[in-house]
Design a protein around this nucleic acid. Structure first.
Length: 114
DNA sequence: GGCGTGACTATGG
DNA sequence: ACCATAGCCACGC
């Protein structure tokens, strides 16, 4: 992968994350699949860990793992910040896990086909 | 090129 | 539901 491809990958991830609706969340794997890189879920995570969500206005808190767990909360300034942001959108979290995950989950592929 | 690492996942016990 | 394993692939050393 050369530098140009990495950049495109990063921007594609940003694009998808940016259109996650308020009060919903999605997973790394779903994003990877949506941008045509189904086996790159770990790299979506890597992009998010460096995205600087606050400055870039990216709702990084709406991206969790496939089971609805807040695996990336440590990347926010305060480890409670991610949960706080999600709860401010009406999402219930217990033990770092989003409750009613099936309902909260938003699949980018479904949105793209509309 | 080898080896460990990581905001991951699918699967099996 | 929880833990262990094994694939995954770019990065850094």
């Amino acid at each position: 992968m050369d530098e140009k491809e990495r950049e495109l990958f990063r921007l594609a991830v940003y694009d998808v994350v940016s259109i996650i609706p308020f009060g919903r969340a999605t997973s790394y794997g779903a994003i990877a699949k949506a941008i045509g890189c189904s086996n790159m879920s770990r790299h979506v995570g890597q992009v998010m860990s460096r995205c600087n969500s606050f400055e870039n206005r990216i709702p990084a808190h709406r991206v969790v793992n496939n089971q609805g767990c807040l695996s990336g909360k440590e990347a926010f300034g305060n480890s409670n910040e991610m949960q706080k942001l999600l709860e401010s959108e009406g999402i219930i979290i217990i033990n770092d896990k989003i409750q009613n995950w099936k309902k909260i989950f938003w699949d980018p592929l479904q949105e793209i086909q509309l």
